[in-house]
């Protein structure tokens, strides 16, 4: 864990987990990775330190969140759509 940079969190709508996708975009807005959310709305990326944009895609909505990730830390992001 000490060397890893993890960005994780959940996507919810009205407090309930929602199935969809989360995209990880780099500082320049370029696509880096995408994962589907789990049954409980969770997602996780193994990234590198820096500024990232998380883009949640769910039926009927797209929501962006800027995050700054640091090495050796979990960056937790709760995204409400």
């Amino acid at each position: 864990m000490a060397s890893e940079t993890i960005i994780q969190g959940s996507v919810t709508r009205d407090g309930e987990p929602v199935n969809g996708y989360v995209r990880l975009l780099d500082e320049g807005g370029e696509f880096t990775a995408e994962v589907p959310t789990s049954a409980t709305g969770q997602f996780r990326f193994f990234a590198r330190p820096g500024t990232w944009t998380l883009r949640a895609l769910v039926p009927g909505a797209t929501v962006d969140r800027q995050v700054v990730a640091a090495q050796g830390e979990f960056t937790e992001v709760a995204i409400a759509v």
């Binding site: 199935n19 969809g20 996708y21 895609l57 769910v58 039926p59 009927g60």
Partner: peptide, 8 residues
């Protein structure tokens, strides 16, 4: 599959 899902 993604588009199909996002379209519900």
């Amino acid at each position: 599959r993604k588009k199909w899902e996002l379209d519900s």
